[in-house]
Write a protein that binds this DNA or RNA. Structure first.
Length: 471
RNA sequence: GUCCCCUUCGUCUAGAGGCCUAGGACAUUACCCUUUCACGGUAGUAACACGGGUUCGAAUCCCGUAGGGGACGCCA
């Protein structure tokens, strides 16, 4: 069987991190089975859909590397639901013709009254089928009707969900939903089913907020006599506090993670491990993810988002990434901090510093922050801890050491360490007593990568310049 | 309110009736390494929501209870 999955966001905002997880699972499932992964933009809500939002979502998908296969659709690089509206309307009319749907002339106000009454009586709020069996002759001429599904009123509808298992609902719980609005546009329920059918979707993988919609959609498939795809509903991703993940939790959009210096491979790996596991494996590279991913491994319970764990996964992928590539990724963040561009020499220095920077950072932003001092010019402003290190004694030692450093033939970290160790031994000092002042002098802080590495990278001229600045 | 789903360390999870004295990862604590901070290494604290069954035996199967989530639009 040739597998076809799809990701179907509505372009009313950014790409939500939960949506990204859904997209990832769809993508992995398609790749695992050698099938296709399609992108459909659900833009039938003309008031809320925006082109900017579509761009943002596409960007997010690209950043995560979730490539879709329908890049050439009527001049667009995605499938637009809105463009299929004629087809949706046609299907709705077909259903009226075959007796599985009917025109309903109840006004919005009339329905509001109906729901209010139901609520007041403590009854479930459902359309009562008032136009279900009325003859066409009753139809008022001046009210444009909607088309409603003539849903079965007895028996039950069963969904065999690949994640949730067999789920049954009594048909008496479901009402006759609207398929086509009075203005002739399709509702989500209709559009989804028609598009999934037309696109040949074999596996509908989506968030479990759609679970109860599935029963109604199955009824549409049945009314049209279409094959029902396999459904798989993924549990929600919740915020750290167990509430629905939202702006309040800080980073709901995929773009937020890019801006905060997370690597897409880390985000993917982290997202994959939410509600899914492969034994004790934690770090799962993409090729393994494709090889191992299956729907049966997806858990049923919602998961909370944990930034600490994401950080640790990100730290792992940072350590794995080649220095040059990492430097290239960090440069924009440094540029943002410095407010100026880096010279090729500076980028080269950053690349050479990367082995010392990598193990100390969890995000690209952290690398940028801790590497700023390399590109610093002028005097540092020291904090209290640093000032405490720069005692008159320490300055005196540094002055003596300056002379020795100047005489160095090769300004390497090994050579520097050698003269510092020799000096410490001569004076009966601990290495830290002179290494820390050097650190403060040339890095501007008490915390930095190994200080002799730093000095060697800065070079003799810059190192001595910075030392002179403080003595 | 009605319907649907879920419940293993703080968090993500392993677990398919005996392999469980419940494993791993993150977080956390201590120690080692060490010129700072990290990385790395070693050790530790920490969970089967509760109550009933079924069974020789239950984290695992069944039934309740509690808690959580979701859906009930001419939104998607």
């Amino acid at each position: 069987m040739h597998v076809v999955t799809r990701f179907a966001p509505s372009p009313t905002g950014f790409l939500h991190i939960g949506g990204a997880r859904t997209a990832l699972f769809c993508w992995l499932f398609a790749k695992h089975h050698g099938g296709n992964f399609l992108l459909r933009v659900e833009d039938t809500d003309r008031a809320r859909s925006t082109p900017e939002s579509i761009e943002t979502i596409l960007d997010g998908m690209k950043w995560l590397g979730l490539d879709w296969d329908n890049k050439d659709y009527k001049g667009r690089n995605y499938y637009s639901q809105y463009e299929q509206r004629e087809r949706h309307a046609e299907v709705a009319k077909q259903m009226v013709a075959n007796g599985t749907a009917y025109y309903c002339y109840a006004s919005t106000q009339e329905l509001e009254v109906m729901r209010a009454e139901q609520k007041a009586k403590g009854l479930p709020q459902r359309y009562d089928g008032r136009w279900r069996d009325r003859p066409a002759a009753d139809a008022p001429k001046d009210i444009p009707p909607v088309i409603r599904l003539k849903a079965p009123q007895t028996g039950e509808t069963i969904v065999n969900d690949a994640v949730m298992g067999k789920i049954t609902v009594q048909n008496s719980q479901l009402d006759d939903m609207v398929l086509l609005r009075a203005d002739g546009t399709p509702t989500y329920m209709l559009a989804v089913v028609v598009d999934d059918h037309d696109m040949g979707i074999t596996h509908v993988i989506r968030g479990d907020d759609h679970m109860t919609n599935t029963f109604r959609q199955v009824q549409i498939y049945k009314a049209m006599g279409w094959d029902i795809p396999t459904f798989a509903h993924l549990p929600m991703i919740l915020g750290p506090d167990g509430a629905k993940l939202s702006k309040r939790h800080g980073a709901p959009a995929v773009g937020d993670y890019r801006d905060r210096g997370y690597l897409p491979e880390a985000v993917n790996n982290y997202l994959l491990r939410l509600c899914w596991a492969h034994g004790d494996d934690e770090i799962i590279p993409q090729n393994k993810a494709i090889e191992w991913f299956d729907l049966s491994g997806v858990g049923k319970s919602p998961a909370r988002f944990d930034f600490a764990k994401l950080n640790s996964v990100n730290a792992h992928y940072i350590k794995e990434k080649p220095d040059e590539e990492l430097a290239r990724l960090v440069v924009p963040f440094i540029v943002a901090f410095l407010g100026r561009h880096l010279t090729p020499d500076e980028v080269d220095l950053l690349t050479k510093a990367m082995p010392d920077l990598k193990p100390r950072a969890q995000t690209l932003v952290e690398i940028a922050e801790m590497s700023r001092f390399y590109f610093h010019s002028g005097a540092f402003t020291f904090d209290d801890k640093s000032l405490k290190i720069l005692t008159p004694d320490a300055k005196a030692h540094l002055k003596e050491l300056t002379a020795r450093m100047e005489n160095l033939e090769h300004f390497t970290s090994e050579a520097l360490e050698e003269i510092f160790r020799a000096y410490a031994e001569e004076k009966g000092l601990k290495l830290g007593a002179i290494a820390q002042p050097l650190r403060v002098a040339i890095s501007g802080s008490t915390v930095s990568p190994p200080i002799f590495h730093v000095a060697a990278l800065l070079g003799m001229h810059e190192t001595l310049k910075r030392v002179h600045e403080i003595i």
